[in-house]
Amino acid sequence: MKPMEKNKETYQKAVARLREIVTDIERGDLDVDVLSERVKEAARLIKLCKEKLFQVDEEVKKILEELE
């Protein structure tokens, strides 16, 4: 798999995982200890998604500039 493919995958996976976490918490049967773990994970994923959405991927930029 190419590095950028992996990045794309990561975004999709991150969003999917976020949805999963929200559903888990919604169900309300999470232990408070687990809850705090999930929240930490979710915060990390949200940060990752926002980076993908709003930050220039220098690697992508470089590769595209080098094409042809």
Binding site: L18, R19, V22, I25, L30, L35, V39, A42, I46, C49
Partner: peptide, 15 residues
């Protein structure tokens, strides 16, 4: 992502 963030915040606050 923002919605997920909001749901998460709301849910966690509620919990």
């Amino acid at each position: 992502v923002e919605d997920l963030y909001q749901s998460l915040t709301t849910l966690v606050e509620k919990r």
